[in-house]
């Protein structure tokens, strides 16, 4: 591996004389293609199926020809099956949860990054534990709490729950982000007459925008993908978010066409993919720092 990486070789890339093909290198390229195909072919197959007629999707042997493209699956998804309502519910819940996590997470993370005394230290530990606690472990009592308060089947309550569930990750991510912001900047602002909070608002926040955006994207994607709590807490059809609604559609598989289901899948995955593409650079470094529960 060292030979491959030597500077001489890196330079030789620009110069024409061809080297004999290294079989190890060739094998690596083959593997790379295999890995990429394994990762992405299922997605491509879903996209293709979403745009094909029922007849084309049902034919056996399966074919990947694309001569019968149609938008029928989407028109019936949004028309007959009223999927727009579920997407709207998902959007409301994920949006509110993202706002909640970003606001509460930012101010709490600032406190945790700048002060170190007992109550805050306890809270920091608490957030780690909360991050590790799997949803199924607390599903039953959470359901009791929410239904006990008469807030079952309530999108706002679901958003509040999501805020709590996705807060720990954002808290720790933002905390380490704030720790990277030099404290001298704030002190300078405070010398110039800012209050501590003013320094936070005018100096730390503007510098930390990339970190805050990353936290927001993670939270939105996680809330948008959540199934377990949503399916347990939402009892009326009109309040379902897109994921449990799609599971109900899936239950009618046979009466529901494959193309329709794939269209639903595509509509759900699209926003996540778009966010991911927009913020890819930040996401990869953020993911390396930890990960969204999932």
């Amino acid at each position: 591996m060292a030979a491959v990486a030597s500077p001489a070789q890196a330079m030789s890339r620009a110069s024409p004389p061809r080297k004999p093909v290294d079989p190890f290198r060739a094998g690596q390229y083959v593997m790379l293609v295999v890995v990429v195909l394994a990762a992405d072919l299922p997605l491509l197959f879903m996209i293709l199926s979403a745009f094909r007629t029922e007849a084309a999707n049902k034919q056996y042997p399966p074919s990947v020809d694309a001569d019968t493209l149609t938008l029928d699956n989407f028109t019936s998804l949004f028309g007959t099956y009223g999927f727009g309502q579920y997407l709207q519910n998902s959007l409301v819940v994920s949006g509110l949860a993202t706002a909640g996590v970003v606001i509460l997470g930012t101010i709490a993370a600032y406190a945790l990054s700048r002060f170190d005394f007992l109550p805050l230290r306890v809270m920091g530990r608490l957030a780690i534990v909360a991050y590790l606690v799997p949803p199924i472990l607390i599903l039953v009592p959470v359901t009791q709490v929410i239904f006990g308060a008469g807030l079952g089947d309530n999108l706002i309550a679901l958003a509040a729950l999501y805020t709590a569930v996705f807060l720990p990750f954002a808290l720790w991510m933002l905390r380490s982000y704030f720790q990277g912001v030099a404290i001298q900047l704030e002190e300078a602002a405070m010398v110039d007459g800012c209050t501590r909070f003013g320094a936070f608002r005018r100096v730390v926040i503007p510098i930390s925008v990339p970190g805050v955006i990353t936290a927001a994207i993670f939270t939105f994607a996680a809330a948008w993908s959540e199934y377990l709590y949503a399916s347990t807490l939402m009892t009326s059809t009109s309040n379902l978010t897109a994921n449990p609604a799609t599971y109900l559609l899936m239950g009618h598989y046979g009466t529901t066409s494959a193309g329709l289901l794939m269209a639903a899948g595509l509509v759900i995955v699209a926003p996540v993919v778009v966010l991911y593409l927009v913020a890819q650079r930040w996401l990869v470094s953020g993911l390396a720092a930890g990960a969204v529960k999932g």
Partner: peptide
């Protein structure tokens, strides 16, 4: 990045 429900849809198919 693919939500679990979409994973289920794709692979059940």
């Amino acid at each position: 990045m693919v939500p679990a429900i979409v994973v289920a849809l794709m692979f059940r198919y």
